[in-house]
Amino acid sequence: MEPLPRIRQVSLALGAEVHGVDLSRELSADVWKAIEDAFHEHSVLVFPGQHLTVEQQKTFARHFGKLVVHEHLLPMTVEGHPECMVLHNNEQKPPGLNDWHTDNSGWPEPPLGTVLHAKVTPEIGGDTLYSNMHLAYESLSAPLRTMLLELTAVHDVAKAFGREFANLQKSLRKKGIDPDSHFSGYAPVKHPLVRTHPVTGRRALYISSPYITHIDGLSDKESRALLDLLYRHAATDEFVYRHRWTEGDLLLWDNRCTQHLAVADYFPRERLMHRMNIHGDKPYLKL
């Protein structure tokens, strides 16, 4: 019988390391069950020392669902693998996005999770921070929690890829994509500010600053004030795990109940990652 993985919690807020598994090999049903249970308990899983091919990474990610192919990212994917985005920064390409967010919240069905594999890591810098949105919601006062249950936010892809994020726009233009015209046909979507996790039933704050334009039903002033409060609150130190990358690390995180921030502090050092998104469902709130 294949031994079960050893799960080691890495912070009180969220995150756990998974030891004793080789993701390049076929895993038993019991091992997969242990990984799934750990994923739903800890929201971020760290698999150290996994030196995988793109195909092996895809096999792992597909266990959790269908992989997403983003049309606008195709010029930045591994040849022959449209599901695998290459995140490559160095002296010629400084790191860009440096904001708390959850992946692709501007789509009607945002990704369930993200799998990121470290191929080249800088000796210093390049950490990724993760924040627990279950804790963010649950630690708010009762009156504020109740108010948030009635509110929805508008998420707009055009905002996330707009002029506010110049480095991202520059990267797309270098690949032959004009962000203004490419994303003009994407309609904004509405998601609840608090969503129910479809597996655990636990509620989580669902915000993503690059995408959200406003909160429905509030004035601009009220919307900005509430969003600013929630953004600051979500980044509270007690909710955060900071991951220091090592080559071969593979991380899986749950976009339904976390935010993350890739710290852009390592220029001009090189950092190379392979990223895959797992298809999710439409965020909902169960009252």
Rank of each mutant, 00 (worst) to 15 (best):
D178Q: 03
P179T: 02
D180Y: 06
S181R: 14
S181L: 14
S181K: 13
H182K: 05
H182Y: 09
F183Y: 10
F183E: 13
F183D: 12
S184R: 08
S184Q: 07
G185T: 08
Y186C: 12
Y186I: 14
Y186M: 15
A187V: 08
P188A: 07
P188M: 09
P188G: 10
V189T: 09
H191Q: 07
H191L: 11
P192D: 05
P192R: 05
P192W: 01
P192M: 07
L193A: 05
L193D: 07
V194S: 05
V194K: 04
V194Q: 02
R195Q: 05
R195D: 01
R195E: 00
H197I: 05
P198R: 01
P198M: 04
P198W: 01
P198Y: 00
P198C: 04
V199C: 13
V199K: 13
T200L: 10
G201H: 06
R202W: 00
R203F: 01
R203I: 01
R203Y: 03
A204Y: 01
A204D: 05
Y206M: 11
Y206Q: 07
S209L: 02
P210V: 02
I212M: 12
I212K: 00
H214P: 08
H214A: 06
I215D: 00
I215H: 00
D216S: 13
D216Y: 01
G217C: 01
G217Q: 03
G217M: 02
L218E: 00
L218K: 00
L218H: 00
S219T: 13
D220M: 11
D220I: 05
K221N: 12
E222F: 02
E222A: 11
E222N: 11
S223P: 13
S223V: 05
R224M: 08
A225C: 09
A225G: 07
A225D: 10
L226P: 13
L227V: 06
L227K: 03
L227F: 03
D228I: 04
D228H: 05
D228N: 14
L229V: 06
L229D: 03
L230W: 01
L230R: 04
L230Y: 03
Y231C: 11
Y231D: 10
R232K: 12
R232M: 10
R232H: 08
H233R: 12
H233W: 15
H233E: 09
H233G: 08
H233A: 11
A234E: 07
A234W: 06
A235D: 10
A235P: 14
T236P: 06
T236A: 10
D237K: 13
E238L: 13
E238P: 12
F239Y: 14
V240T: 06
V240E: 03
V240L: 09
V240R: 09
V240A: 06
V240I: 11
V240D: 05
Y241C: 15
R242P: 06
R242E: 08
R242M: 08
R242G: 06
H243P: 15
H243E: 12
H243A: 11
R244W: 11
R244E: 15
